[in-house]
Amino acid sequence: MNNINNNRYANLDVNNPAPRCPVILLLDTSGSMCNDMDELNAALRQFLRETAADEAASRSVELEVITFDNSAEVAMPFTAIADVDPEPDPLVSGGITAMGAALQLATEHLRERRKLYKTNGISSYKPWVILMTDGGPNDDWESAAQEMRERGERGDLQYIGVEIGNDVDHETMVRILPENQQPVKLKDKCFKQFFRWVTASISSVSSSAVSDQDNICFGDPTDWADL
């Protein structure tokens, strides 16, 4: 994916008055994902295009993409969705699953981003964190997962864990995610349906007043979720 700007503090437009909705995609790019990468990349492009085209979401959504395989990397730092290249270089799979390192990065970046909003007088919605994997962590994940799990349990975070295929370490995913937001299995390669649902959901959030975000009724996820 093309990096828009490697300085993750620089991409904040203080002259945009809209409350921000920070979204982090944590994407498994380990070797076992090789059979899913085409669909994932296509769905990601669709997500970038459709979210940027949405009037409300395009003003509020700031996206960061973190990939994890042998290590965790910021494929794209927080960037206003309207400024993201809708045709990024495709993600490539290979290596093991450094999910713990990715969770650590996401926790730190989310904390910094929210602080940045506050110091500039910009209000924000709850962050959305989307963790997609077809396996389980090969590294230390427990301390890395703790802060976001707790935030999710307090209702301060929308945390979506998506399990791809049949080889996911479900027990570990259950422990990573908040008790009230347990992981969901993706229906067979329904990446596009999933990301379309995400676009619609964050569009609803961006259209609401900040104090009203808990009253939103999200769309039915059964198009993509094997519940």
Partner: peptide, 20 residues
């Protein structure tokens, strides 16, 4: 009213079963 319905506060899962 604005589109809101009784649902778990803010949880993304509150749309389950409400296919429209």
């Amino acid at each position: 009213s604005t589109p809101r319905q009784a649902a778990p506060a803010g949880n993304w899962r509150n749309g389950i079963g409400k296919k429209c």
